[in-house]
């Protein structure tokens, strides 16, 4: 039902994006590019969760890569060491980060100020140390080998097009769930906290509770991404789950913009593209190393914060809007609704 006055979810945007995802593998020429596009999907899942936390709960997590790592390592250990089905360990890969987030958030006196950023930073470091040192379980810094592939009804998802579609199916699910959340009473409550915490609490919104719930959801999404990552690769190592990774996710969200779900998606895609491009350059030019990549992300982060604090996506959406309205069919009525809806969703 079309309702006047609500910033509505843009089903058209979602449909267009889905089509793009479906046809993308046919446009990519090499298997390396398909792998990169698969990674983009995994990162999207983490970034969308972090985007919800930053844009809607107003909190920053510097430990998202650690949740991602908890998801990856818990499934790796459960499946390779204990022989549990990967589909069963998916549940653990989701609930373990959620539980950690609950404990972290709870001890942080219901998430005020920058305490969560500090706590997640420390948590990220602890997890990294654990992954390196707890060799009995994690096999240490050299990495964990022998993670089984995912199988469903006799079909094996191997790295390549099938895994690409699997990852993006999860990513689209995460996007849809997130869009549903922000367009619900919870979403409105979260957005209201962002604009005036005193007013939203006097409307009866338990601000601490919703911040906590979003934090938990962001951890669950990271856990799903970790699970996907582990079963995509034969091996994982602690290097993927350190502070670098957390900063990378943060950069994605800041670059794309945290005030909409699509901003985080856009940021994840863009950073993956930039990273692939830099790595391709690196194979030709000797001074472009992975350190160079980090400097580049730092630079991007600074420039965006200074010049486009809302992120790239809102700016691009605003630029595209007149064009879309000009070429597309004009809406008959409730044009304000339509315009706002497109922007928000």
């Amino acid at each position: 039902m079309k309702r006047k006055g609500i910033q509505q979810m843009s089903w058209k945007g979602l449909a267009a994006f889905t089509v793009l995802i479906l046809i993308l593998p046919f446009l990519l020429s090499t298997s390396l590019m398909i792998t990169k596009a698969t990674f983009a999907g995994i990162y999207t899942i983490v970034a969308v969760g972090l985007g919800l936390l930053m844009g809607f709960a107003g909190q920053i997590s510097l430990g998202q890569a650690a949740f991602y790592g908890v998801g990856a390592y818990s499934t790796a250990i459960l499946t390779a060491t204990f022989g549990i089905s990967p589909w069963l360990s998916l549940l653990i890969a989701i609930t373990a980060p959620a539980l950690i987030a609950y404990i972290l958030g709870h001890t942080m006196a219901r998430l005020h100020g920058y305490y969560l950023a500090m706590a997640t930073l420390a948590f990220g470091i602890v997890i990294h140390v654990l992954l390196v040192e707890w060799k009995g379980f994690t096999k240490g810094a050299s990495g964990f080998y022998g993670i089984p592939k995912l199988e469903l009804f006799g079909f094996t998802f191997t790295q390549g097009i099938s895994y690409y579609y699997l990852v993006w199916a999860f990513a689209l699910l995460v996007i849809i769930l997130s869009l549903n959340i922000i367009h619900s009473r919870i979403g409105r409550a979260l957005r209201s906290i962002h604009d005036s915490e005193v007013a939203s609490s006097s409307m009866g919104v338990d601000t601490g509770r919703y911040k906590m719930q979003v934090f938990i959801i962001s951890a669950m999404f990271a856990g799903i991404a970790g699970w996907l990552f582990a079963h995509m690769s034969y091996s994982i190592s602690p290097g993927s789950f350190g502070l670098d990774g957390s900063i990378l996710f943060l950069t994605m969200v800041v670059l794309g913009g945290s005030t909409s779900v699509w901003g985080a998606v856009f940021g994840a895609l863009l950073i993956t593209a930039i990273s692939s491009f830099v790595q391709a350059l690196g194979s030709k030019i000797s001074f472009i190393t992975s350190d160079f990549e980090h400097v580049l992300y730092g630079l991007i982060l600074m420039l965006v914060v200074i010049f486009l604090p809302q992120g790239l996506f809102p700016a691009i959406a605003a630029k595209l809007k007149p064009f879309l309205e000009f070429t597309g069919r004009k809406k008959k009525s409730g044009s304000i609704t339509a315009v706002k809806g497109d922007q928000r969703a």
């Binding site: 409105r188 604009d195 939203s200």
Partner: peptide, 19 residues
């Protein structure tokens, strides 16, 4: 004035129905 500036008028009132 503590309105939710980035939400529509209707959405502001909808927050009032939260509880």
């Amino acid at each position: 004035l503590q309105v939710f500036k980035r939400m529509t008028v209707l959405e502001n009132v909808m927050v009032g129905l939260h509880t």
